[in-house]
Design a binder for these strands. Sequence first.
DNA 1: TTGAAAGCGGTACCAG
DNA 2: CTGGTACCGCTTTCAA
Lengths: 338, 338
Amino acid sequence: MVSIKELAQRCGVSVATVSKALNDKSDIGEETKKRIREIADEMGYFPNASARTLRSKRSYSIGVLFGGDRGTALTDEFFPKVLNAFKLAVEKRGYEIIFINKEVGSHTMTYLEHCRYRGVDGVVLAYTYYRDPEVIELIRSELPVVTVDRIFEEKTSVCFDYEKGIRDLVTYIYEKGHRKIAYIHGENSKITTKRVDSFYETMKHLGLSVPDTYVREGGYLDFRKAGQLTKALLDLPDPPTCIIYPNDFSALGGIGAIHDRKLTIPEDISIAGYDGIPLAKAMSPELTTLKQDSEKMGEAIAERITALIENPGKEPIKRIMISGKVSCGNSVKNRNRG
Amino acid sequence: MVSIKELAQRCGVSVATVSKALNDKSDIGEETKKRIREIADEMGYFPNASARTLRSKRSYSIGVLFGGDRGTALTDEFFPKVLNAFKLAVEKRGYEIIFINKEVGSHTMTYLEHCRYRGVDGVVLAYTYYRDPEVIELIRSELPVVTVDRIFEEKTSVCFDYEKGIRDLVTYIYEKGHRKIAYIHGENSKITTKRVDSFYETMKHLGLSVPDTYVREGGYLDFRKAGQLTKALLDLPDPPTCIIYPNDFSALGGIGAIHDRKLTIPEDISIAGYDGIPLAKAMSPELTTLKQDSEKMGEAIAERITALIENPGKEPIKRIMISGKVSCGNSVKNRNRG
DNA sequence: TTGAAAGCGGTACCAG
DNA sequence: CTGGTACCGCTTTCAA
């Protein structure tokens, strides 16, 4: 690898001049800058990341903490898409991502220590166990922080707009003529609460009553439970005409149960998912769902964290909402005409 | 962050001694080592990664290159699971992963340049466009390299054993009494060729003939095409009793087509997928598939690349095969009794 | 506008 | 066995 020294010799100037020229400092002549840049390109020069970081305290790397210790978020069906979008968006801005964890070999360090160890410029937290004292320590640190799908005091956050999402989805189903809508929701969490509250509010706003038996706790990754609950809903004396699932994945459990009962979708019973994973389009009938925009999400996180890094203390705390769109599909029957 | 200097002062020894003690060099007394380590723990000391890398040329980071420029592999349904397993396995060994790409901000660099820029200790390549000259340059470089699912001369590789996988799957289907087995395979690639060859060989070995019309090119992510081809197969004068798909995901396209034809699985037609994604278990009926062991894969890659890094020039070139297991499910009918 | 030199926080060599 | 010191490659201050 060609070093700044070699480059300087080749240019016939000092290393200081080269460094300043490449970092576009104001105290170098335009002529000189131009020449140095050209020769640098020609020689394929890149500053050594470690040296630069060591001296300048800027690593151009962003720590990503997600899914707690077990690092299971990557095995989820939806998060990798957000991560990928985020990755591309930060790379476009000259940053790289580094996964933050507690164990580095035999050493155990806190998340914050890990961040300092690697010298990350900022941190993004997503789907973590937010009550973990170490997570809290990290959030309260002086590092630029963006939290995903969770709001913290004094910190910028980017969240999917679940309230609007559920509202739009329920409204869509309502407009298709459904009045008896059941909701199998995910495990208890802030996100789930938001969704459930929005469900009740929307239903109320639409003038519909919701029997207690219509709202059941399933799980985001538990398709088996979704199947059981679906059967329970179908067995009610007054069953719903449409069932909303925690997400697209768990909707599959429901579909299995519906097939078991020899019913067809959407003729006999309508269903809707949430997330809009590619799979939803592959299903037959195509699943009605709320498509969350993972690209917009990734881009928004990247935009915010890099802004916080590059304008320390000058960026206001923002609460960004990313809204999705109903993906109609064919799993919700139109009851209006017949 | 506490530096080695402060730690040395606190210990009453020189920085050199501290460095050597913490790196467990042989020329420091056991007593001293122990005392220094204790105080280091107490003070929460960690060596600064940049400083260490700068001087020692060891970054304890591993570059990961996958899915080419667009970085789409993370959006795939299966690769994130391998990546996650790999990530956990390298972290256990004290390494971190860094994604290699061409664009870092406005700079464009080759993959190899990026590796040098970040000073990665080794590289893992997976599902890349292997004919890209830059990829070849990287593979031929002096960096420790492990390739995934692809074999290169003089380089260590870890591959899923597709030959055995297809053989086991076909044999399983055969044992269930099927004789007319069709195979919709993925896009042309080395991996696909291996699978198709194994399919033909196994069929031959089982004494079964394969009409040309039974083997069709679909796509790994193209469920729509899988649906079309399924219909074509069903329309044959002598249709197969079982269809194997490129993977679990594309099998869904087939299922849709089968439902469209008002046929049931497995009574009217049997199907099988490949990969064993969680979804396969969620389907109804549960999909018969070949479950690939992503954990074993991740662990094997991690073991190999770290071995290559830590024993430069001493590790033999290995070709590791990761074999999966037939996950029976219920989508292949037992034709033996009835 | 340019350059010399200090130093970021470690590691590695060599002397004691 | 321990310590002094050069130095990894770059940025930054300060002097010219």
